[in-house]
Design a protein around this nucleic acid. Structure first.
Lengths: 228, 228
DNA sequence: AGCAGAAGACTAGTATGGAAGTCATGCTTC
DNA sequence: GAAGCATGACTTCCATACTAGTCTTCTGCT
């Protein structure tokens, strides 16, 4: 691992949370590569903390399926796996289509405000060719839908299975920049939700979540070393 | 917390896993009551291990939503919440209906063997009025479906949201013993899956997962102290 | 040369001590 | 009596030391 990690020790947030956040980000953006070994000691030294909070962050990231802790042997960043990505997609389709239906039923003025605002910022990020910002806004878009649907735990589940897909999308984004298409799909979902058309919302979401299947084979081929 | 906990120190499984399992079981069966405070030291002493593995188990159970760790203040078993139960049910309906469809498409001789064997044992548990055994078999039934559908991560998600519902079902089971009805529903799902009828399988599963909504109000009323 | 085995350099797992924060209790002060 | 503050008994959080397992590497023997 050569990427420089940084951690802000100023405020009162528990160290373990910061460590977790920094590591998750480093993994999803692949500044730590899939398949790479990491050790508690190494990360602790790099971040200037003791092994303990790092170890606890490892547990969390292990639960999330990003790390695999091998007792007495070491810890490694799990490689991207086509099966795991398709599996995560399956979950997201099931959950998010249900969320889309529910959101369409519970739409209102506030939903209009927040979704349109988010879409606006997505377009700006695309104009400025800022994939990182778009990535964040994409995540926010899906979180907002769960919020509108009144299903907080749906977002927790999605957050849980997302990272595997995210690494593929990150590669796809930096390679091909398909932001335009994604924004159109987000727009279609938004229209359907705001017009209260549950069936159309579900359909638009299903189509949106099918997108990754298109890019997956190409990404897997171009970055074979990152896949298992 | 007055319930006696026990832990087997013999084999080589990491202590933290045993602690996690023992605690999860104690929480779901409510030998540790919702709302009750637990402390690392207390559990560690009771189990004859150090605080460290207990602490790590707390982290895992906190991620699963069974415990809430309040920094510097203490840790408590989260109370059952109607909203959380309904939320978990929403997730399960979305995921398990998709699993049922997929399982129906991928059914085969092996599916027949394992499902019918499981059903047989369910009936025996009901005959012998053994709710604990039935509980385990119920869990196995749903896990088998995910396995048949070839969606391992679906089971991980279900496992994650299940515990909240499980406590309600545990109360319902010990109060009312509705095993008969549940077995009929499991039978309907099995028939649909084995005949390859995806639509019927989804329908049967949806109906099955609606069941808990029937008992929830009564359980919440009879055990108001366990709810928030 | 080739193999066996000891030694050492790693790893994560566990135990323990102390730091930092929270809260209830009781004393002090007005 | 009531408000404010010190105190002590908790809690989790973090650092550190030690245990135990794994893997490589080197050494000595056949």
């Amino acid at each position: 691992m050569s990427a420089a990690l940084a951690i802000d020790m100023a405020d009162a947030e528990p160290i373990v949370h910061k460590v977790t956040r920094v590591l998750r980000q480093a993994i999803v953006t692949m500044r730590i590569k899939p398949g790479e070994m990491v050790s508690e000691q190494e990360i602790a030294t790099k971040l200037g903390v003791s092994r303990q909070p790092v170890r606890e962050a490892f547990i969390r990231l292990g639960e999330a399926g990003l790390l695999r802790v091998l007792p007495q042997r070491g810890t490694l960043v799990v490689k991207i796996s086509r099966a795991a990505v398709e599996d995560a997609r399956f979950i997201r389709e099931a959950v998010e289509c249900a969320v889309a239906r529910e959101a369409a039923r519970k739409t209102g003025p506030r939903a209009r405000t927040v979704l349109q605002d988010n879409l606006f910022r997505q377009k700006r990020a695309a104009r400025e060719k800022d994939p990182e910002a778009f990535f964040t806004l994409d995540e926010e878009f899906h979180r907002l839908l769960a919020e509108i649907a009144g299903r907080p735990s749906a977002w927790r589940v999605i957050e849980d299975v997302k990272p595997q897909m995210d690494r593929v999308r990150y590669l796809d984004m930096t390679d091909a920049m398909p932001m335009r298409a994604l924004i159109d799909q987000h727009g279609a979902i938004t229209s359907a939700v705001l017009s209260g058309d549950a069936l159309a919302a579900e359909g638009a979401m299903r189509h949106h979540l099918t997108e990754i299947l298109r890019s997956l084979p190409r990404v897997a081929e171009q970055h074979a070393d990152l896949f298992e």
